[in-house]
Design a protein around this nucleic acid. Structure first.
Lengths: 93, 93
DNA sequence: TTGACATGCAAGTGTTCACTTGCCTATTGT
DNA sequence: ACAATAGGCAAGTGAACACTTGCATGTCAA
């Protein structure tokens, strides 16, 4: 169980969430490709897999196995905790 | 310049933000005391000072020097970026 | 003015973390 | 069946990070 805050601490993981916002149900390989194409990042497949594991452990990504494919879907619900914990105050605007 | 996400990654820093939500313009020593009282944490003064430095660098804490006191105030505005970057989708609710 | 108080700076240490490497398992198509 | 594809496991490495220690600076009150 990773907490949401630690999951967001890494830029690569944030970019993975960005890509999943664009389209749900993407495989590990698709996400690796998009990191390279859209962000000039070329971590190994294992590194990306570990990042997705952290995101899943934090509840930010849901996984569904379909044959030999593992499809990843974003779940932004846990992020609500952040806005609720430190709400915006009018005086600061 | 620390990014907001890294600033939130540490539990002690999150608790400091919690304490600053309760009351603005607190000194380093006040915050040290509250970490001990409310959360059973006893890091050194320097450790807490460094954490406050990270929060300030991320724009989450504003500082005002008043004589020998340094008063810390929370600024939750940077957190809005998170909710905007990965908005909640109806289908997930 | 001098001692107490509030904070700052900087080097050193141990742990956490991202990443790689190497090998293994499972599924699919021909 | 078997080669190709998609993914998994686990140990090892280097860097980033939280934290401490020791000393220095600046402010205030008696």
């Amino acid at each position: 169980m990773t907490d949401v805050y630690k999951a967001l601490a890494d830029e690569t993981r944030r970019l993975l969430l960005d890509e999943l916002m664009q389209r749900d149900e993407q495989t590990l390989f698709e996400l690796c490709t998009k990191l390279a194409m859209n962000h000039d990042l070329t971590p190994t497949r294992q590194a990306v897999s570990q990042h997705l594991g952290v995101l899943e452990s934090a509840g930010l990504v849901r996984v569904e196995r379909r044959g030999r494919y593992k499809l990843h879907t974003i779940n932004t619900a846990p992020l609500a905790e952040i806005a609720e914990r430190w709400p915006l105050r009018k005086a600061q605007q």
